[in-house]
Every structure is written in structure tokens, then in C-alpha cells.
Design a protein around this nucleic acid. Structure first.
Lengths: 232, 232
DNA sequence: CGAGCAGTTGACAACTATCAAGATTGGTGG
DNA sequence: CCACCAATCTTGATAGTTGTCAACTGCTCG
């Protein structure tokens, strides 16, 4: 992706409702363009909260506690706007799952500009609330679900995002390693591996290579995820 | 708290930056005043996402999965603005920890009004992001902390919010039951009780009655919470 | 084709949940 | 003011799930 294309994409996604294309300039002036390779951490000083616009690629937002334990707090993909706090009780960093391109803004400056454009503010608001809702769903998973339920839920979520095929069966490409899955679900890689093994044994899924998973019985998987029925 | 006072409080907290006191009227027109007693669930139809302004009292935002398992996703107190999604993978409800008074808004109508007042939009934005950051911290706890660490962290957080006394020691009033603590930390009440017991045995805390806890050694508790050191 | 890393599997330990009694607490009514 | 009651909390014994450590297997990519 060329620079021009990144800026364009940012304008289209975040500033689209403004109508005035000049609106992009002050934002681009305070934004820093960053390219990151697969598995590269995006360097962000801890001093200021940031907003990061993902122009292309997939990223994980990781928190680390001491003792080397890490928790992936969210995955973010093309066109997402990620809010990253400065270092608090835990330190956060953004890491590329695949080659990425992004725009990094100091949050205070970004908000100062947004304050002058209600449409942009509304967009940020909408996205923040969506992120909050997703984060709550993750909290429920981490607090009250078994390894089996988390795994089923994860596979279904991936299928919804980028699964192909339908009528009860579905092929999914996992863009992340077992470690990332584990860090996202609050489990260990061994437990993830074992859960996949059990699902295979039961015939609910099959795998080929490291990243391809075939879901054979979405309905049973949904039951395993222990979500609420559609109505009730 | 009288009605007038509730409306006033809403205006002061959420609309304060507008300057124009007439700005409150359209909001109050679409808001529903709700009183709730201790342990009462606030009835919210599942149809629409909501914003709830807490005029007074303390509340818990609870998600329930099937199997009767519940996870408290956040506690909210006076002057907080709570965003509640409509029923998704899990159902949410707001519940009063003590007698409460609040204003309930349909989120879409609320946002439509806010869109016309950048200052209000900015305020919502700021609060949403703060809620997101808190939620992420909770996710880390639920995903990667032991019962002991969660308990220490919880006590310290409560101390920070409403603890009295200082110089290494601190008295805290817990406004919630053991069940609520457990549901907030993703544990069972028995585990919560045992963790408190251990902390007592070690002399780090002492309790009197059900809700008073004395923290005797904040520094050691902080170490127990496994948070990052202040600089690192 | 082989090296190195990612993933799997197994044995075991640790932690937390579950089930089941008891013990406190704080409020109520005598 | 005291005794009692129901609810809440604590404690104990046990089982189940997940983490830890270690060995092994199988991808991928040079």
C-alpha cells in the first residue's frame, strides 16, 4: 500500500462524513506513518495515549503483566481505529500479525482536532462503544467460560469474520499462532492444542496444516460455546 | 434525591460544557427516570441499546450466560454514564447495589441529540474510552491472574475509591456482597472467602462485620496484585 | 533434505470449583 | 435488651480442570 493510499483510506473511513476533503490535512499532519513486519512490535512511547489507524494488515493488542504472562486484549484489522492507553497498571503494545501499515496519533492531539468536527467525534464515539462491547464479551469469556467453550466461541467468531463455505460446514484460515490464540483466550498453548484435539476426535472439526480448520458442525459448536439462544 | 436534583446532576455532569442550560431539555424529554431499591434489577427491554446515567447510588452491570453463570462486567457509581448493549451473545442487566436513581435513554435517540452538540459528544467519547480501558484491565485480570492476585487488586481498587486512613494502613467499606465480589472477579464465593481468610492469616488485612476490611500493608498487597512497578 | 521452530501429547501438580456442613451476622419481634 | 431466625459467610473434603514440565512429532522454508 502506498502512502497516498493509506492516507486516503484513513480519510474514507474515519473522516468520511465530513464531506470536506481538506479535513484530512490537519490529521495527517499530526499522524506518523508506521510500517511493521509480521511479528514486529509497534514502538509507542508510554508517555501518551495513542490512536492507531490500521491501514492494512492484522494486529494484536497485548497487555503484559509481570511474570511474563501476556493477555491479548483485542485483535484489530484493516480500517480499525485502536485506542491505546499509556502505561498504567499494565503495559500495552500493538504487534503485527502480518505485514501492516498504520497511522499513529497522539490521542490528545487527535481528540483536539476531532472536537472541531462533530461527525468525526461521532465516528470515534461509535467505534469506542463497539470496542467496549466487544471487550465486555471477552471479559465474560475469560471470567466464566471453560476452555472448551472459549475454543468453540473463538472458532465461530473466526468463521464469521473470514470463513468460507456454508450449509453447516465452513473452512477457516487462522491468521495467528497457537500462542496468540492461547493469549487471546486466557489459556496455555497446550490447552488450546488439547481442545482442538478433542474437537477433532469428536468429528466436529478437522485441520490441515497449521492454520486451516474445517468446521463440520456449526450448530453443535454453537451449543458448545454456551451462548444464549437467539430469543429467550 | 428529588427529580429536579437528578436532572440537574445530569446536566452538570454530561452537559456541563455546553454552557447553554436549555441544552438539557431535549435530553430530559427522551429520558425515563427510574428509581431502584437495593438488589433491584433495572428493567430494560432488550430491543434497544441504552445509556443510563446514574444520579445516585451504586450499580453493577451483569452479564449472564446460560447455566446460571454470571459475570459482573463493571461497577458504576454516581455520575457515571453506562452504555448497555441490546441482547447479543449474552444478556446484560443493570442491578442496584444500594438505593439508586437514574435516567434511562434509548442510545440511538441519545446519540442523535448529542450529534448536535460537539461538547457532549466529546464527553461521551471520553467516558467511553475510559470505560474501555477499565474493561481491558478487567480482561487482563480475568484472563491471567490468580485468585490471590485478583483479590489483592480488588481490595486495592476499593481502597483507592473509598478508603479512609493512610500511612500504609487503610479502612475500606465493601458496598457489595461476597457473591458480587466473586461475580466481579470471575471466582466463586468460597474462593473469595478463602482468599480473604488467607490474607487475614498472613496479617495483611483484618475484617469486622461483613463489609469492613482493614488493609494493614498496602505495599505487600500491591506486590500480591502482580502489577507493574511504577516505572519500568 | 535437514534444521529449527511450531505444535502435539503425556504425566503430573496446582489451583479452583463443587458439595456439604457449620458459624456469623444483623435484623426482628418478643 | 435479649433471643432467635434467615441469610450470608466461612471452613472442610473432594473432584475436576487447567497449568507446568518434558519429550516427541511434524510443519515450512531454506
Amino acid at each position: 500500500m502506498e502512502l497516498h493510499s493509506l492516507n486516503r483510506r484513513f480519510a474514507d473511513n474515519i473522516l468520511s462524513k465530513v464531506g470536506n476533503t481538506d479535513a484530512a490535512e490537519p490529521f495527517l499532519a499530526i499522524g506518523r506513518t508506521v510500517q511493521a513486519e509480521r511479528n514486529e512490535r509497534i514502538r509507542l512511547d508510554d508517555e501518551w495515549p495513542k490512536f492507531v489507524f490500521i491501514g492494512g494488515g492484522a494486529t494484536k493488542l497485548v497487555a503484559h503483566a509481570s511474570s511474563g504472562r501476556e493477555q491479548i486484549v483485542a485483535f484489530h484489522f484493516q480500517d480499525d481505529l485502536v485506542s491505546i492507553p499509556s502505561r498504567g497498571p499494565h503495559a500495552y503494545y500493538l504487534c503485527a500479525l502480518e505485514d501492516c501499515e498504520m497511522l499513529v496519533f497522539r490521542a490528545d492531539k487527535f481528540m483536539a482536532l476531532a472536537d472541531q468536527q462533530p461527525a468525526i467525534l461521532g465516528e470515534i464515539c461509535k467505534r469506542s462503544l463497539a470496542a467496549l462491547w466487544r471487550c465486555r464479551e471477552k471479559a465474560i469469556q475469560l471470567g466464566r467460560k471453560t476452555a472448551r467453550e472459549r475454543m468453540a466461541n473463538f472458532l465461530l467468531a473466526m468463521a464469521e469474520r473470514n470463513g468460507s463455505g456454508s450449509n453447516g460446514s465452513c473452512e477457516v484460515q487462522l491468521p495467528m499462532s497457537r500462542r496468540d490464540i492461547a493469549d487471546g483466550l486466557g489459556l496455555t498453548i497446550e490447552t488450546v492444542s488439547r481442545q482442538l484435539g478433542e474437537l477433532k476426535t469428536e468429528g466436529l472439526i478437522s485441520t490441515s496444516g497449521r492454520s486451516t480448520v474445517n468446521l463440520h458442525d456449526l450448530q453443535t459448536l454453537r451449543a458448545r460455546a454456551d451462548l444464549l439462544p437467539d430469543t429467550g
